[in-house]
Amino acid sequence: MGGLPANRTVNGFAVDTDNPKVMYVAMRDGLFKSTDAGETWKPVGKDLRNLAAVAVNPKRSGEVYVATADGVIFKSPDGGMTWKRQQ
């Protein structure tokens, strides 16, 4: 699980349906993405913080949603590279 902040709470987790080795972890520190089933992780969405949950659209690979702890939703159409606030 290299690349995730150590000893920190994982609040949210989601998997890409097309390729289950692509996965996302939501933490207070932000969003992290793995493309090797969780062996290594990289931060994505550098301005995202205080995340409570993450979800992937099962019909559109790469369409990712995150929610902050107080319910602000952000959407990415490209696997976490770019983000847009939904409200």
């Binding site: 949950a53 979800a55 702890a69 107080d70 319910g71 602000v72 939904q86």
Partner: peptide, 10 residues
């Protein structure tokens, strides 16, 4: 949105 208390799941 943005008015939720303690979001747990999405």
């Amino acid at each position: 949105g943005g008015g939720f208390e303690h979001v747990h799941a999405l």
